[in-house]
Design a protein around this nucleic acid. Structure first.
Lengths: 338, 338
DNA sequence: GTCCGGCACTTAACCGGTCAAGTACACTAT
DNA sequence: ATAGTGTACTTGACCGGTTAAGTGCCGGAC
């Protein structure tokens, strides 16, 4: 049960390997009748071009890489990555590019994986997530000349293409909404402070709160996990002057915060309003359903994949701004009880 | 910035390509001093073997494939797959195998992807999830002679290696526990009924309920999504003789069920006890935290990857039984209010 | 002195594609 | 009749590894 090669097709069609190659790739050099005959034979014997051979003769590997650098326990539960991945796939699958995945523990390992993949010619490009300040991956990507697209940058000038969204604008909208409802003590539980988009959000949050005269608007740093989300929420709620609204940097922490409030006997949204960043089915799953900053994560992923394919094709692409997250009000926000 | 090849190493070391190949692969045929020299040069110039060239000359592709066949909205939120994936990685990474991922919409597409991957020599084997009755993928895998490991079979004889766990035993434990607490009206919200492990669970659930004399133990089929979980729960709770305990086939539906109960003003666990299948951080996140049937999903994945690598190496492996899920009691179960 | 075995390499074929260069033939223009 | 042009192929090199077969040389046995 040997897998067929173009030589098999050539033999059956009575032509040379080269002719078969031209026929299969839609290149000129064979007549229409011959081409049809060859395609029919290929179809019949279930031919698929050996990707290794193709990659070896100068062509692409037709695969892109993605590394996930978060602890497994949070990876599993956060809908964000899977949304992103299904977006990539939608685009990559259409061009029959494969997606190669690697879970890593540290950014250093991540860099190692990039080096290895690229050295092995296993991939044509990578998608980079969770950009940090002075990210050590960027100079390596640049040095390797490895086509890449960064997700979640700040939109500033960068040697690597970025797909970014206006997180500052989104959080400003959320704060204004809460203030319009009558809230004046608004807190925030953030994601990992090292991440660039966390910093963008923190800055915008501080600015809008200052401009609206909210003096005690504080941000408690956390790490996207439920445990940290609970801890941060408890810290915020045990104080005497507890906030009447909390904005969370992801859905998982928001759900954890909701549970803490319920556990402490606080009513949501009566005693506490909750806003989650990044809408997902998780937000509509709980009671009350969470008001969220929604965006089309999967579309975001598809856009990133599209830009990466462009970069691989040598088209120089600049930073791309994706849709800004918009507020989806649900049951977890209301005017504060007086 | 051309990427180095063994020819580059050979030139610098003043030996032939063949010698370099022997040296790098730890094969006999070169002296110890030469080998060390070659390895040092390889290290210095950052050599990585071209995976395409290696794969082309008869060797392995050093990659395995995984297809995910669930709608994106549920893929994202279910921790199960990510747990599995990080388990695979732990094992594959150690052997420097890559994991290639593809999201598909239907089992037919899945089969197509297998055919293409195998035809392209892109992968050495696949991991198959969500086994169905008379699964159409199994004969194809067998016909292609594509090394594979099936996750979530029933443990019965099969032409393809299975990693399975005793789901019947686990659900029996859960029912007995609820009965011991004093419950007599126990319902179940199941996953997709086509899946083999759903059938195993349903059968065992019916049997244990019958043997314990629980006459109105019913299973409402759902599809693992929160929406269906809510709907099924509502249906169960609006009846006059509503159950005092519900077992859900995954954590997402259990959380949705909890929200429905709260929304209807029922207290959990006072009026309704809830048990989730497959523990995950999600279960401890909500209030009250959910009693769950736990197992080491990531370990399960690692075991599957290990068996697949064995199968790829030509070692004939039989079915492997993984650890049975065990009950982790939390706040969502209690004796029913009288 | 020579024959033999073994070590440390080299040589070259091979994997299965791609693609530039070459060839054979028909048809047209002069 | 002859050159020129285009079409429809064939030929063969090449990508970067692996590996069977070949070579040169050294040391030891007879």
């Amino acid at each position: 049960m040997k897998r067929p090669t173009i030589a098999d097709i050539a033999r059956r069609a009575g032509v040379s390997k080269g002719a078969v190659s031209y026929a299969l790739n839609g290149q000129p050099g064979v007549s229409d009748t011959t081409r049809k005959r060859i395609l029919a034979i290929a179809q019949e014997i279930g031919f698929n071009a050996n990707s290794a051979a193709r990659a070896l003769s100068g062509a692409r590997a037709r695969a892109v890489g993605l590394t996930l650098c978060r602890p497994a326990r949070i990876l599993g539960i956060e809908p964000w990555f899977m949304g992103l991945i299904s977006g990539f796939e939608a685009e990559l699958g259409a061009q029959s590019y494969a997606l190669t995945l690697q879970v890593v523990a540290t950014p250093e390992q991540e860099v190692e994986v990039y080096r290895r993949w690229w050295g092995e010619r296993r991939i044509d490009g990578v998608i980079v997530t969770d950009l940090r300040e002075n990210d050590l991956r960027i100079p390596v990507l640049h040095q390797l000349q490895l086509p890449a697209v960064v997700i979640g940058g700040s939109g500033e000038e960068s040697p690597v293409t970025q797909i970014w969204s206006d997180d500052g604008g989104a959080i400003t909208e959320a704060v204004r909404y809460l203030v319009a409802l009558g809230h004046s003590r608004i807190a925030r539980v953030s994601g990992v402070p090292d991440l660039l988009h966390t910093q963008v959000r923190t800055k915008a949050f501080n600015e809008v709160c200052a401009s609206l005269g909210l003096s005690d608007a504080i941000t408690v740093p956390a790490d996207y996990t439920g445990e940290e989300g609970s801890r941060a929420t408890r810290r915020l709620l045990i104080g005497g002057d507890r906030p009447t609204a909390i904005i969370y940097d992801n859905d998982v922490m928001a759900v954890a915060g909701l549970a803490v409030a319920q556990e402490m006997g606080l009513s949501v949204p009566g005693d506490l309003s909750i806003v989650a960043w990044d809408d997902s089915p998780l937000c509509s799953l709980v009671h009350p359903p969470l008001t969220a900053l929604s965006r089309d994560v999967s579309g975001y992923g598809a856009q990133a994949a599209r830009e990466l394919l462009n970069a691989i094709d040598g088209k120089k692409v600049g930073n791309v701004k994706a849709q800004t997250a918009h507020l989806t009000p649900r049951g977890s926000t209301a005017p504060p009880r007086t």
